[in-house]
Each structure stands twice: as structure tokens, then as C-alpha cells.
Design a protein around this nucleic acid. Structure first.
Lengths: 141, 141
DNA sequence: GAATTATATTTAACATGTTAATTATGTTAT
DNA sequence: ATAACATAATTAACATGTTAAATATAATTC
């Protein structure tokens, strides 16, 4: 068996954990977990989206998103609507409250990313991002 | 806010998903999920381990491991023991049945990894593994 | 245009992720 | 030797991950 150290899935998991460990404490002060933050930042970036598009872009599965939507709506962070042209689709967008939270988190997130770059090496971090995109794109295609 | 495409955590998640999509169907034919396979392959590599060491090496949290151990023991894949010198520790090792399954999966796993390398480019895959190790090591240290 | 097929979302059931609290065993200090 | 402290594992409670089935709405076909 290939050594665990040379396993691509395990290496990706390990690095992800090492990176997320830097972000989680900050997000926790806003009562957000990693998945909720992904959903929110994707909506910030794309504006209103239907549930399927949001789930794909935020790397969350449909059933998880269904539950998260309920919770985030109760917290007044998400506004849920129905598509007038296609009654099957749920449309999601951020509330003003959520947009304000994003505006607060953005500079903190940037600062954490810069710390990560300092520890990891700026060049190596950029190169890692580049390779991740290349490999994922080729595997998805 | 940094574009989602340039987010390191999301890039790592995306690539991990793209990679795991190639392995999951094969593991499913053995009734194993990703986490169970990590636990088994770590035990194959290191032999008997206590629960804390196993959890760390397999990137599984303690409470998850507790539940997985019960399930894997019921399936006769794991043998659970107590450390004679330290009564707090649970010692885990693979059954012969599990070792046989590893022997069957190993060549299939290698083949899938080679397919991934073909799609991703052998050089880029190697370079990605190298950078993942460098970045994780620096962030953990 | 009614029946069929396809798509979007939700629900259900069970597994793992996550944090905090609990229990059991060891170690250290006095 | 006992009290205080530390560590290993488990339990509890709730969140997300995962697959399959159910529900609702659209689109297609005859």
C-alpha cells in the first residue's frame, strides 16, 4: 500500500486542517462554522442564487444546505424566495445583517490569509493555489 | 472579500472532492467509507496503535473514532485490546480479514492513483504532493 | 392535453464532525 | 498515602456528510 504520507486525499485533508485551524477561531466569534461561512461568502460573491447553484459553488450537499438554510434564515442572515418562472426553485440571498457581517469578517480573513502566507511562504502558497486549480480542473473535466 | 476561487480552504476542498470522487465507488464495493479506509490503512502501516495516535494519524476526531471502532469491531475488521501498562489506553489492530481486504484494495487504489496522475499530469501531481507537505508542515510547526 | 419523463428540493436514516462534559486511570506533590 | 492534577477514552448534543426515497413542479411526448 502507498504510504499514507504520499496519499493525495490524506495530504489534502491534512493541509486543509492545518489551514482551517487558523480561520475557525475567528469564525466562531461570529457564531459561524466553516460551511455556513462558505455559503455566505458564495452568496456575497454571486448575489441571489438557487439552492442547487449555491450548493455546488459552496461545496455543500443538497440535504445539508436545506438544513443550513432554515437555521440561517431563523438567524435573519438569509432571505428565502421562490422563483416566479420556475416554482421548483428556491432563491437565496443575503440579508443586510449578513452583508454587514461579511464586511466585518473580510479584513480579518485577509489578515489570517496573510499570516498563512507568511508561515507557508508566499511563493509556495501561490504555487499551491495554482496547482490545486489545475489538478481539480483536469479531474473535473 | 477574496474571490472564492482564490480561497485556499475552498481550493483544498474542491480538489479533495475531485480526487475522492475517483476512489469512493471502489471503496463502496467493500462497504467502506473514506474515514473507515483511512483508519484501516493507518493501522496497516503502523500496526497496533492506541486510539489517540490512530485518530491523529487518520485525521479522525476522538468521538468519531469511538463510534467507528464499535462498528468495525462488529464487522470483525478490528481487534480491540487494553494496554496492560496503562489501563486508560485502548489498543487497536487489524484482523486477518481486514488485512486481506487491504491486500485486495491496494492494487485497485494504486490503479486509481495512476489514473488520477494521468489526468492531472504526473509532474503536477508530484509537485502538488510536495507543496501540500511543505505548507502543512510549516503551518503545523 | 393527458401521460410520461425530467428536474429541484425536501425528507428520512444513519454516519461522521465538533465541542463540552463525564468517567476512568495515572502521575505528581505534599 | 492521600489530595490534587493530568491524561485517555467515552458520552452527550447538535451540526454536517451521504445516499436513497419522496414530493412538487416543469418539460416532453404521444
Amino acid at each position: 500500500m502507498r504510504e499514507t504520507r504520499k496519499s493525495l486525499p490524506i495530504a489534502l485533508l491534512r493541509t486543509r486542517e492545518a489551514v482551517m485551524a487558523h480561520f475557525r477561531p475567528m469564525l466562531a466569534t461570529y457564531g459561524l462554522n466553516e460551511q455556513q461561512w462558505r455559503v455566505i461568502r458564495v452568496l456575497e460573491e454571486h448575489g441571489e442564487l438557487d439552492a442547487t447553484a449555491l450548493a455546488q459553488k459552496a461545496y455543500v450537499l443538497g440535504p445539508s444546505l436545506t438544513r443550513m438554510i432554515k437555521s440561517l434564515e431563523e438567524r435573519k442572515l438569509l432571505i428565502i424566495g421562490r422563483d416566479a418562472r420556475d416554482g421548483r426553485r428556491t432563491l437565496l440571498r443575503l440579508s443586510t445583517k449578513a452583508k454587514n457581517i461579511v464586511a466585518e469578517i473580510a479584513p480579518l480573513s485577509d489578515k489570517i490569509f496573510q499570516e498563512i502566507q507568511m508561515k507557508s511562504g508566499v511563493g509556495d502558497t501561490d504555487e499551491l493555489l495554482r496547482l490545486l486549480d489545475i489538478v481539480a480542473t483536469r479531474l473535473e473535466g
